[in-house]
Nucleic acid binder design. Sequence first.
RNA 1: GUGGGUAUAGCUCAGUUGGUUAGAGCGUCUGGUUGUGGCCCAGAAGGUCAAGGGUUCAAAUCCCUUUACUCACCCCA
Length: 419
Amino acid sequence: MIKTIAGTKDTLPFEISKWQYFENFVEEVMSRFNYKEIRTPVFEETSLFARGIGESTDIVSKEMYTFLDRSQTSITLRPEMTASVMRSVLEHSLDKQQQLNKLYYISSMFRQERPQAGRLRQFNQFGAEAIGLEDPLLDAEMIIIAYDILKGLGLNSLEVKINSLGVPSSRENYKKLLRMYLDDKKGGLSEESKKRLDSNILRIFDSKIESDQKIMENAPLLLEHLDDGSLEKFETVKSYLLKAGVPFEIDPRLVRGLDYYTHTTFEIISRNVGSQSALCGGGRYDLLASEIGDRLIPAVGFAAGMERILLACENENCLVIPEDEVGVYIVRLNNDLYNETYNFALQLRRNSVKAELDYSRKSVKAQMREANKINARKTILFGGDEYTNNEIVIKDMKSGVQEKIGLSDIEKIISIIED
RNA sequence: GUGGGUAUAGCUCAGUUGGUUAGAGCGUCUGGUUGUGGCCCAGAAGGUCAAGGGUUCAAAUCCCUUUACUCACCCCA
C-alpha cells in the first residue's frame, strides 16, 4: 500500500473546517491591517534561497529539497517565503510602484528535517512582510499582527521575545569583541559551537549545551554594543508595543538562524506544544533585497507555523469549531421514486439549500438515522400518499414537529428549511 | 545525521508464566413489522497479530534483522 511520504500529512475531511476557520481568521485580520495576499511558486531557482537565506544556515546547508529538473536547472522547494516575496517585489518592481508594500501569505513550505511533534517536512505558514520603509512602527506592527492573531484564536500561554541585531557595522565590531572574549575559552566549547566561531559566531548563544551556556553567561551582549541609531530604534519599537498592549520580554540571546536579519528580531513561543515551541518568528531584513537584487529595500516580516499553532490550540482547548450541519435531508419513502427524489433534492440545491439524500436505496429508518447522524436540521419525507396529493412532509429534527406542504411551493419549503 | 519508544480490526486498546477457532469498546452495515432519527437491544461484516528469519511439539507472546510510525537532540515555524 502506498502511503504519504515521511513528514507529510493528509488533512482529512473531519479536520478541514478548523483549517478553513484558521485561514479565514488570518485573512480577516490581515485585511483589517490592509495587507494584500501574495502567492508565489512553490519552487524557485536554488540560488534564490542560497543567497537570500545564507549558505551557512542550517536551512540551506542541510534542509532544502533541491533537485535538478530535466534541463539540469537546480530547483528548490521553498523552505520559507520571505526570499520569494522579495524576489517577486524586485522582479515586478512593486517597490517602484508604491513606497510601501504590505503583503501576506498562507502557504506550504518544505524542509527535509527529521519529523517530530510540531515539525513536518511539508508544513504551512502564514506570514506578513512590510516592504519599502524602515520605520520602527512597522517592526512593531509585525509583532502586533502576529500577537493579535494568536491571541484572537484563543491562545493564552504566549511569550513574546524581542531583540535587536543592530546594523552590520556595529555588529561586526561586536563580533570582534565576542571573538576576543572567546579566544581563551574556545577549548571548552562544543564541537558544534566551535564551527560557529567562523561561520556564525552569534549563534553560539543559541546553544543549549550547558558547558556552552556557562561560557556564554558572561559574554558581552550585542544589545549592549549597539550603535546609538539602532538603540533608539529598538527603544521606539518597545514603546509602540507597550502602547499596543503587547506583553514582551527582551531576550538578548535571540539571534535567529537566518543571515538576513538586521535590527529587530522576535519570536512568539508557547509552552503548550512539544519541544518545538516557536509558533512565530520574524524581524527586520534590510539587507535581503540587495543580496538577491540590485537595490536596497528596507523590509520587516514574520512567519508563523500553522500546525504548531493548531497543536497549541488543541492543548489549550481553544478554537471551538461549530459542528457541521445540513439544512435538510430528503427521505425517500418508496424506492420507485428514486429519481424523483433526487430531482427534488437537486431543485433545493440549485436554490442554495444544503441538502442531502441517500444514494443506496436504504430503508426509511436507515435514512432517518443518517439524517440524524449528519446533523440535518430538517428532514423532508418524500413519497407515499402525500406524493400522490402533490405534497411533502417536512419535519423539524429538534422538536420532532412535522407539517405538510405543497410539493411545488418551493419558496415556502425553503423558508421553513432556513427558519 | 544521532539517540529512545512503539507496531494486534477502520479508530482506541486488552491479550495472563509461549498452549485449541485472537478479544472488547467505538465506528460501519442490517434488523427490532406496514412510511420516521437520537437512547436502547439483537445480529453481521472486518485481522497474513508491521514484514522476514530463528528457537520450540507449539509463537501475537522469546531471539535476530528490516521497515514504518513516534518522541527527543540538532535547528527552525
